[in-house]
């Protein structure tokens, strides 16, 4: 059974849809990259998956459950890291972690062990009593990442995770993602950093103007575009040019 399954999802902010019958799935232990230009529909797809927007058509299942069937179970199955870090200005770093543990029902001893490991990995142990106003953008992003990883859900949904992170932070994030997928968790990661996506993702979904234009492993994509040595950058540019040409003709 797929961890995340989108079937013909159509949706958007108004009656005119931004997404057109988007379908893809993510299996257990897969790291899947969602790639697209600005305005391609990546964030809208993510908003539909996390339940902030209702699809106008189609269905989304996480662990075999739709949002309407069991909202609590649906939400417990994933954690989300937004592109822009959104923290509670009135909570310290430790309180952010505690709040996440309470919300996801994590026992105290497991919370202590998991949070200690994450704080060490992201070099934030000395900032437990700090409020977000004292954090840089990268530190704010690290708080969001740590909260998402603390819950240890079946699926991680990550929107542009590398923005604002320093090289050590990026390395820690990638190490955590690798470790978690090895342990069976799945990851949907939207990014513009194509070289990183090419290197780390098991599969790539190319989204263009609200539709899935191509998806598969790098080899699948190279075969589909007939360019055996192409990088993801080359394939992406080829796809957008092809789409523009189709529109003109």
């Amino acid at each position: 059974m797929a961890i995340l399954d989108l079937k013909d999802v159509t949706g958007g902010y108004s009656r005119k849809p931004v997404l057109h019958e988007v379908s893809f799935n993510i299996q257990k232990g897969e790291l899947v990259g969602l790639i697209g230009l600005n305005g391609a529909g990546k964030s809208t797809t993510i908003k539909h998956i996390i339940g902030l927007m209702n699809p106008q058509g189609g269905a989304i299942e996480i662990n075999g459950v739709t949002f309407d069937e069991d909202a609590e179970m649906y939400r417990k199955s994933f954690s989300y890291i937004p592109e822009t870090p959104i923290l509670y200005e009135e909570l310290t770093l430790r309180e952010h972690l505690e709040l996440t543990a309470m919300a996801y029902g994590i026992p105290q001893d497991i919370f202590e062990a998991r949070s200690a490991a994450l704080l060490k990995e992201f070099r934030m142990e000395k900032r437990l009593k700090w409020y977000p106003s004292h954090f840089s953008k990268g530190m704010r992003q690290k708080v969001m990442i740590m909260c998402a990883f603390l819950a240890e859900p079946a699926l991680y949904i990550i929107d542009e995770p590398f923005v604002g992170l320093d090289p050590l932070g990026i390395r820690s994030l990638l190490a955590q993602l690798t470790q978690r997928t090895e342990n069976g968790a799945s990851v949907l990661m939207s990014t513009h950093v194509l070289s990183t996506a090419e290197k780390h993702c098991d599969r790539i979904i190319l989204l263009h103007e609200g539709s899935v234009r191509a998806h598969g492993t790098m080899d699948d994509l190279r075969k589909a575009f007939g360019r055996p040595d192409a990088s993801l950058d080359d394939l992406y540019i080829a796809m957008t040019e092809e789409a523009d040409y189709e529109q003109l003709t």
């Binding site: 509670y88 009135e90 309180e95 505690e98 709040l99 543990a101 309470m102 919300a103 026992p107």
Partner: peptide
Amino acid sequence: DANVERTDAQSFLLRRTFIRT
């Protein structure tokens, strides 16, 4: 101080929001 097993998340958050904002 919170005990994450016994404290309710929303109660924990809202108290701090009310007092610290």
